[in-house]
Simulated scan of single mutants.
Amino acid sequence: MIQPKYHVFICTSCRVNGQQKGFCHSKGAVDLVQRFMEEIDDRGLSDDVMITNTGCFGICEKGPVVVVYPEAVWYGNVTDDDVERIFDEHFEGGTPVKDLQI
């Protein structure tokens, strides 16, 4: 079993019935998941970073919401443009991106 260094949870507003609708979904969270996965592939970090899409975290006004474990770092209003910074600074640099944290 792979033991990733980081486990990333991204709210895609997934409902129990499998439908995706809601604030994070309407703000492009599904595309954000894809962007994270592409960055993992581009950087060869498939053993270090694992992505899981989730249901609502309950702070929709901060969405899309991304949570990174094991540090329990919460990022809000994440855009495609922020993904590279998260990889550069947090996953590869070891320091969470302060201005994105909630």
Rank of each mutant, 00 (worst) to 15 (best):
F23L: 11
V73E: 04
F87A: 12
I86E: 08
R43P: 10
T12K: 00
V16H: 12
N53M: 06
G94R: 03
C24Y: 03
G22S: 04
F9C: 03
P4R: 09
D42N: 14
M1T: 12
C11E: 09
V68Y: 04
P64Q: 07
N77I: 02
G44W: 00
V8D: 07
C14A: 08
G28Q: 02
G94E: 03
M50A: 15
A72C: 04
G76Q: 05
C56E: 07
I10Q: 04
T52K: 09
C24A: 11
G94L: 04
G94I: 03
G22D: 02
D31K: 12
G94Y: 02
V73T: 14
F87Q: 10
F57R: 02
I102C: 04
Y6R: 06
D82I: 08
I102S: 03
V68I: 15
M1F: 08
I10E: 05
M37T: 13
S13I: 02
D80K: 13
Q20H: 11
G44V: 02
V33H: 00
G28N: 03
S26H: 07
I2L: 13
K62G: 13
F23I: 14
F91R: 10
C11W: 04
D81N: 14
N53F: 05
C11G: 12
A72D: 11
D41A: 15
E71G: 13
T95P: 00
V33Y: 00
G76C: 04
R35K: 15
N77A: 10
N17F: 01
G93H: 10
T95S: 10
Q20C: 12
M1N: 11
K5Q: 15
K5R: 14
D42P: 00
T79I: 00
L32T: 06
V30H: 01
C60M: 08
Q34K: 13
N77T: 10
T95W: 01
T79D: 07
Q34N: 10
L100C: 06
F87H: 10
A29Y: 04
V66P: 08
C56K: 05
I40T: 09
S13M: 00
Q20G: 03
T12Q: 02
Q3D: 14
E84P: 07
S13W: 01
P64T: 09
R43I: 06
T52R: 06
M37K: 15
V97C: 10
I86V: 15
D80W: 02
